[in-house]
């Protein structure tokens, strides 16, 4: 579970690393991004993520906004994730919440996963055969 040498990076320093990575825009290939929602919260709980809809799908060209909430148990436990932009997708409930039972990254969480992992994996899921052609609600927010 822990990295080599069993060094466990505590929650707050892990979130600071993620914040720095997100701020520098090192998050993958620019198809996802993330940052803190409340820049004055010393506990760094509320985050906002975006996913650029993958090409050759119904999501192409759309920008989806998500809310991620990291409680005190992060990253031992996954954050709570919900879409703010309306979307029709197999792992997303009617209220926008990403259902861990239908999304493996959350359902089988590992400590070395990050918010970037979640966003990149959700983007892949958008392009999966069972999602890529699903009819979508009119653009808007939950």
């Amino acid at each position: 579970m822990a990295g080599p040498g069993n060094v466990v990076v505590p929650r707050n320093f892990r979130l600071l690393e993620e914040l720095e990575k997100g701020e520098k825009g090192l998050g993958g290939d620019g198809s996802v991004s993330y940052g803190m929602d409340d820049s004055e919260d010393l506990l760094m709980r509320s985050w906002q993520g975006t996913i650029l809809g993958p090409p050759n799908t119904v999501h192409d060209g759309k920008i989806y906004t998500l809310k991620l909430y990291c409680d005190q148990n992060y990253p031992d436990k996954p954050p709570a994730v919900r879409f703010y932009s309306r979307i029709n997708m197999s792992c997303v409930a009617a209220n926008g919440v990403v259902d861990p039972r239908h999304f493996n990254i959350l359902g089988h969480w590992r400590r070395d996963y990050s918010m970037e992992t979640i966003l990149l994996e959700l983007r892949r899921e958008m392009a999966a055969p069972h999602n890529r052609k699903l009819s979508q609600p009119p653009e808007g927010n939950y």
């Binding site: 505590p10 707050n12 010393l42």
Partner: peptide, 21 residues
């Protein structure tokens, strides 16, 4: 404050942050 010694300490600096505003 909170202080963390990363894996490569002492080759890398400790990480430190204030918890009090």
């Amino acid at each position: 404050l909170e202080l963390f010694l990363p894996e490569d300490y002492p080759m890398a600096a400790p990480k430190v942050r204030f918890l009090t505003k």
